[in-house]
Design a protein around this nucleic acid. Structure first.
Lengths: 124, 124
DNA sequence: TGATTTTAGTTTGATATCAAACTATTGGGG
DNA sequence: CCCCAATAGTTTGATATCAAACTAAAATCA
């Protein structure tokens, strides 16, 4: 799946991003401003990992970081124009990905799969 | 799951091993001698990754590496005595892991899950 | 109010991982 | 037989990832 996504992104001229960067961008498509801690929770990665990932997105020009004025411990991440432009491309890749993933899998099977996986998820 | 396994291993006094090292050891419990390429295929990891993983197992005293006499390109990995002693511990951890994993999941659900996952696996 | 604890992020050091370049050996075809 | 291609592993360089130590700021509490 990682390879699939990486290949698709390369086809669209997006390079240097991993699946985790994509996860972060997805969060930012939904909510325009997120703290580092919110991102950490949202993508289930350690906060120090998020620091590195977001810094890379900043370096590539997709995201900005800004300190909160009230509580200066807090740092917000938000999309730049360039970052926002990724949304339609990502939606398209996501669709293709899911289509490939669920090829030959019926709706009923999908439903059952999800239900059992959630059960297993809660076992940890 | 990785954390679960790591915790269990630590309880048994086994430290410094990741899940991938466990995968390699499992292969060696079944077949006493494997080439680096066979391990690479067996654990679905790049051959250069296997070099690093096996070297660590050698460093920790669980495995030996030996060149083939006939074809000197080939390198065999095999368990040491210390490596073999891990088998019962690993079997026990494996059982506990699967029990935790499949808690509250019926046999029928397991079967369906596996069938659909295999289908999805073949989609890539 | 002042000390202590909690919280938010970053830095540091270690590890697994991959891809690409490289080395060394084997096997085939002219 | 020799060259070339294929094969087996290793080395190198980059990256994501985590945990632990650290910094700085806010919140609690006595």
């Amino acid at each position: 799946m990682n390879r699939f996504i990486a290949d698709e992104m390369e086809k669209h001229g997006i390079e240097g991003l991993s699946a985790s960067h994509g996860d972060i961008l997805y969060l930012l498509f939904r909510k325009t401003r997120l703290t580092m801690a919110e991102i950490s929770k949202g993508i289930h990665k350690d906060k120090s990992t998020v620091t590195a990932l977001v810094d890379k997105l900043v370096r590539l020009g997709y995201v900005t970081k800004e300190r909160d004025n009230g509580d200066t411990r807090v740092v917000y991440a938000a999309l730049t124009r360039k970052g926002s432009e990724l949304e339609p491309i990502f939606e398209s890749i996501s669709r293709d990905m899911l289509d490939a993933f669920y090829a030959n899998v019926s709706e009923q099977e999908k439903e059952d799969l999800l239900r059992v996986l959630i059960k297993i998820y809660h076992n940890f």
